[in-house]
Each structure stands twice: as C-alpha cells, then as structure tokens.
Design a protein around this nucleic acid. Structure first.
Lengths: 163, 163
DNA sequence: ATCGTTTTGTTGACACGTCAATCATGCAAC
DNA sequence: GTTGCATGATTGACGTGTCAACAAAACGAT
C-alpha cells in the first residue's frame, strides 16, 4: 500500500543489521556475565544499584520505578521475587500508608558489592577499551539523537500519551 | 575485593548511561510501533521476515534458528503460538523425519506485507534520518567493535563454549 | 547390523515483561 | 465531610526467554 516507503539500500542494511544484532546481543551478554559471576540477573542488579546509591539503601518503590523508567507492576513482580530471595525487604512507609520503603538486606549489599567490579569491568572492556575517542563521542551523539527522535515520535518509554 | 577495578569517570558514565538507555528503549519502542500498527510482536516479525526471504516462504526450523541466532526451544515455543494464531504451519519434512518445514500461511504473508513499510519507516526516521553520515559510519564501526570484543570474551550469542 | 554420538525438535519449570483490573489512600474542591 | 480524582502498589492472565531433560531420527565407526 504505502508505495513511497523509503527502503534501505545495501549499505544501510549493513549498518542496521550490525546495530540490531548488538541491540539484542549486548544486553544478553551482560546478563550472562552477571549471572555467571555473581548469581544476579540484570534487572536485580539494576534495582540493587539504585538502592545502593541512596544513603542507607532504602528507597520508595515509586522512586525506584521512576528512576529506572519501569512500570509499577514490573517492579512489583520483581520485588516479590527478590524479597523471596532475601535481597530486599518491604517496609511500610510512615508518611504514606499507600507506599512501601524498599530496603536492601545485608545479603543485598553483599551481592551488589560482589557484582559491581565485574560489571564495570565488562563495560570497560567491551565499550570503552575497544572504541577510539572519536567513536566514543560519536556513539554518545548518535544514541542521544536516536533517543530524541523516538521521543519526538511519542514512542519512548512508559510515559502515557497525552490523551 | 578487586581493588584495581577501573571505575568509570563522569564522562564515561554519561556515555554509558545514554547507551544503556537506548539499549532497552530502542527495542521496546520498535516493538510498540509494530504492535500498534500491525498486531505483530517484534519476534513474530523477525520470523516472518526470515521466511519471506526464502523463495516460497518455507524454511527448516533449524535454519530459522540459525539465521536469527536463537535457541531451538525459543523458536519452538514461538512457533507454537504463531501456529495457533494462524501465521505459520508446521509441515513434516520429507528428507529428514526429525525436522519440520515451517511454512507461512496467507495470513502470515498478509501480516508481514502490511507491517514492513511501517517498520522500515521507523528505522529510517529514528536511525538514519537523525544521524549525519559520519555518525552513521561511527555507529557501524563502534557496534562492530563492541560485538567483536564480546565475541572475543566468549560471551556472545547462543554458541556453546568449547568445553 | 549395532553401538555411541550428534542433530533436530519438544516439553516443563521458572524468570521476566506488559496490560488491564483492582484496591486503598491521599488530596483537592465544594 | 463527602465527593471525585489522582497516586501507590498488587494481582492475574498471558506472551516471552532460558535452561535442562527428553525423545526420535541420522550418522559414523566397527
């Protein structure tokens, strides 16, 4: 139907293919490394990392979800599993009876402290070390522009559309 | 413990943060667009796209899995759902009694033909249009290098390690 | 021919994500 | 203060992914 679609030429297909492969492969490799070295999944690491940046390892669930740009239910499901694993605890919130404070247990602290070096090393060895300075800067500007473009198209993240 | 970890400085954190955000956000936006415009999930689109490149829309399941670098079980689960939706059919293979030929139904053809223009447009508008020529080339070399680095580390894809 | 191994594919258990529905609480308007 | 709406969080259904176990056919060596 849409006969004026601007299809990709050969070179564009090559770029797109490489990018798309990396898109799925990078996260999956990162998760694999994390799981292998520290018995944490990628999403568990994200939550623990957020918590560890708070003063005492305690945050409102709402704030975690906002910081990670996650849906509430996604976080809720995950926290249930993490609580069962003993990594975090739900504590009722004194100032808002609806809310919960999520608090890292000592097992949670141990897990994130053990996992962080390997994770950072993964990023350094597979992102920064292989790239030249120019490539690193181009990567930053390219990712920023793509993200902005998707935002402009109203397709980014979990933010609800304007009616 | 690993006290010689080379942590990220501020600028590196900024690059890493932008890249990581794009990593999860891009795929999710793409899937959202696809689902909205054509009632196909991203993975369903991948399978149908592979099939549509075969002469008659028929491929061995094994070859689809290999082309997409997927685990067999992942494909098997998905094909079961896609067959239930009427997008593909499993046909017993004449030359190998273990295997199955996966064949697109006419509904499958219709779905992929309807979805393709919007998908290509998404890629063009959010990858190629926002990027300069230099950025496009840098993106290609950067993604290629990251992927190669991960491969060298033995963390890429579903290929089993060498015992 | 038969034995052991590889290949092909399925299944079940479980981790994970989205969506829609639900529920209680806070809050603002009146 | 009650009515109405927004907010914070949970739940259940279902699509999706991984992993390990399984079964059956193919294959290669003897």
């Amino acid at each position: 139907m849409n006969s004026d679609t601007r299809w990709l030429n050969d070179h564009e297909q090559e770029v797109w293919r490489a990018f798309r492969e990396l898109l799925w492969g990078f996260e999956s490799a990162m998760d694999r490394q994390l799981l292998r070295d520290s018995d944490l999944s990628g999403v568990e690491y994200s939550v623990l990392a957020s918590l560890s940046e708070a003063d005492d390892g305690v945050m409102r669930a709402r704030d975690i979800a906002q910081q990670l740009d996650w849906e509430r239910s996604r976080l809720s499901h995950l926290l249930k599993r993490m609580e069962a694993r003993g990594l975090v605890e739900r504590v009722t919130c004194a100032t808002d009876a609806r809310g919960f404070n999520i608090s890292m247990t000592s097992a949670g602290w141990n897990a994130i402290r053990q996992a962080a070096p390997g994770h950072v090393t993964f990023v350094r060895e597979n992102v920064f070390d292989p790239l030249s300075d120019a490539e690193r800067e181009a990567l930053l500007s390219a990712t920023t522009k793509m993200q902005q473009s998707i935002r402009d198209a109203g397709l980014w993240g979990n933010t609800k559309k304007s009616s």
